[in-house]
Nucleic acid binder design. Structure first.
Length: 601
RNA sequence: GCCCACGUAGCUCAGUAGGUAGAGCACUUCCUUGGUAAGGAAGAGGUUCAUCGGUUCGAUCCCGAUCGUGGGCUCCA
């Protein structure tokens, strides 16, 4: 979403202070207007600030105007942001006397961390527990560069078991121009949103009658999907993967063995009972692949075994979490499980990282993605209890990141219950971070399924398992591609690659022949022989982001040529049909991201 | 699931201080045979304003519930 101009650290710090002060100003205004409201927390964020309030009557959008007016009035009174500090006991007493129950809790936590003194900032009659820093005086706030933005509910301390607070978000920048630019950028992002483009480009449909979170692909969307599937399946086979097919239902028992039933049940559909046996829609493919592996004895000679599948799977989501193609309940993951000797796990994982690197490069997403190393956190109960294996797997992953020079963000608390993950992250146009691909070292499941192989010395040993997705889940990957390219996908992914536009119906037959010639090569071509003006046909084709437009009139027909317009450069050139066909075909099969077949830059 | 907002023709949106709905684009028909981003004219299109209840002489507009969508929170591929 909003990309900061490169800002020198001083300026960035000043902006941060301002935003933080704005959040105090917001809280002060709110408490003047509604004294019964209690304070949560109010930090600066990427595009401004927010403040959380405890109240029986959550704020609504219509409240923002009054609050904003009060903020401006308060700021114009030129209050100093006066710091002070006091002992923990005194602070608690003061806050308790003001009824600030949430702030009391914060002080107690600080005390538990060993703090003996806490700091406050005043703003007129308003006083807030806060470590600062702030601008010196409210007159230093750029009142024309801020705006209250929206309201939302947010659980106290991010815990859904605790009360829901009412959060007010505000935007704040150094200058009014920055604010306007940000708002403009947000509108531009809306135009790139895959949900909007998906409809405009006729890629997918979500029908309430089919069910929310259950997208359907049109023929055009399916074409994109098929291109991705063919690409990844071919690539995986080249790299030694064995493509298999397993069912989307499985006995509940299977997931009890794997531990998913215990650890992951909230995300699974309730069992379907058939003749007294419980079946579940699979949320993951691992147990199925494990059973394939376990179906016969395995020798160390055949390891690593790499089972891959484009797996349909179903995960139950809370309704508020669904979003277009990015968060759905039914999706298709390019999944694989690699069974290897424990001592081979590093080379195997390196090979996985190499594959996803290649995929990102091919899709043109490499610049937009970053790695996240997802480890355990202190809430150990979420994870399989095997401290030594965890330590080993986490160390292996760190080593690999280092060796392969991946600058991964380390994030405790995001690991799978059975092992650490190396995720590839990307941001939607709306600025929300999502996982595109995920790869895991599994320290637990092989044991639960009693997987083994026979080693050189004849002993039975347990393999390690690497879970990985090469091109992620197709729904989400398509959404990111559409947003990244604003609909103008690389040629090999475009549902319609070439459009032939006859100028008059004299050329319809010739145009059909051109179309045929291109289609015989496996290209996706449409003929627009409607009785419309050329201008109109060109306009519509441009809006559909068709990579190449072939205009054919009398001249082209006579010389057996096409007059081609390049989507990306908007340049035109006239060339023999065969020559154009060869050039496009080459770009298609090489999955080129540049259109060079005609009118190259 | 929770908080806030929204739900009017295929799309983008008007509208009525409550008296049984309108525009542009798309669509259909006719005219135009046009050389690179909207040729012209006419017409049709809403079981009447997501659904179901309630208030009212009367509701698209007020209230409630449900469903769906969007933005947050939590969760997550």
């Amino acid at each position: 979403m909003y990309q900061h101009k490169t800002m020198d650290p001083q300026e960035a710090a000043r902006l941060h202070e301002m935003r933080h002060t704005f959040s105090h100003l917001l809280a002060a205004a709110v408490q003047e207007l509604r004294p019964e409201v209690k304070l949560g927390i109010g930090p600066a964020i990427d595009d401004g600030f927010y403040y959380d309030f405890l109240t029986d009557q959550p704020f609504s959008l219509s409240d923002l105007k009054d609050i904003e007016r009060r903020m401006r009035k308060l700021a114009q009174a030129k209050h100093d942001l006066a710091p002070s500090s006091m002992g923990v006991a005194e602070a608690k007493a003061l806050l308790a006397q003001r009824g600030e129950v949430l702030k009391v809790e914060l002080v107690e936590d600080l005390a538990a961390q060993g703090e003996t003194e806490v700091s406050f900032y005043g703003l007129g009659g308003f006083l807030d527990l806060c470590k600062g820093p702030h601008v010196a005086n409210t007159k230093d706030l750029p009142l024309k560069a801020f705006k209250l933005d929206r309201v939302a509910g947010a659980y106290w301390r991010g815990d859904e078991k605790r009360p829901m607070l009412s959060r007010i978000y505000g935007l704040a920048f150094l200058t009014p121009e920055d604010l306007a630019a940000y708002i403009e950028q947000r509108e531009e992002a809306e135009r790139r949103d895959h949900r909007r483009l998906g409809r405009d480009m006729d890629l997918f449909v979500i029908s309430p009658d089919v069910g929310k979170g259950l997208p359907m692909f049109t023929e055009k969307g399916t074409t994109i999907r098929r291109a991705l599937e063919r690409f990844i399946v071919d690539e995986e086979i080249k790299r030694g993967y064995l493509h298999v097919q397993t069912p989307i239902l499985g006995r509940k028992h299977l997931y009890e063995i794997s531990g998913h039933w215990e650890h992951y049940q909230d995300s699974m559909y309730p069992p379907i009972n058939v003749d007294g046996e419980d079946y579940v829609l699979r949320p993951m493919t691992c147990p199925h692949h494990f059973m394939l592996y376990a179906a016969r004895p395995r020798s160390y000679r055949e390891l690593p075994v790499r089972y891959a599948e484009i797996s349909p799977m179903y995960r139950k989501e809370k309704s508020g979490e669904l979003s277009g193609l990015i968060r759905v309940m039914g999706f298709h993951l390019a999944d694989a499980h690699i069974f290897c000797k424990p001592e081979d796990v590093k080379p195997v994982f390196r090979e996985v990282v190499d594959l996803i690197g290649y995929v990102m490069e091919t899709l043109g997403l490499a610049e937009r993605c970053w790695y996240r190393l997802s480890l355990r956190d202190d809430h150990k109960e979420k994870y399989i209890d095997a401290p030594e294996s965890w330590a080993m797997a986490e160390r292996d992953m760190r080593d690999i990141c280092e060796e392969m020079k991946l600058e991964a963000q380390v994030e405790p608390g995001h690991a799978a219950f059975y092992g650490p993950k190396l995720d590839v992250q990307m941001a939607t146009v709306g600025g929300r971070e999502e996982t595109l691909f995920t790869n895991q070292i599994d320290i637990a499941l092989a044991q639960r399924f009693h997987l083994e192989y026979i080693a050189e010395d004849g002993s039975r040993r347990m393999p390690w398992v690497v879970h990985r997705s090469s091109i992620g889940c197709l729904e989400r990957t398509i959404a990111f591609l559409v947003e990244h390219y604003a609909g103008a996908l690389p040629l090999w992914l475009m549902p319609v690659q070439v459009k032939v536009l006859p100028i008059t119906d004299e050329q319809t037959a010739y145009a059909a022949q051109v179309k045929d010639q291109l289609e015989r090569l496996g290209l996706r071509v449409e003929l627009d022989d409607r009785k419309e003006t050329l201008n109109r046909k060109v306009r519509e084709a441009k809006m559909q982001k068709i990579p190449y437009l072939c205009v054919v009139g009398q001249r082209e027909q006579q010389e057996g040529s096409v007059s081609v317009t390049n989507r990306d450069t908007d340049r035109k050139s006239t060339l023999p049909v065969a020559q154009f066909a060869d050039a496009v075909l080459k770009e298609h099969v090489t999955r080129s991201r540049q259109l060079r077949a005609a009118g190259a830059a």
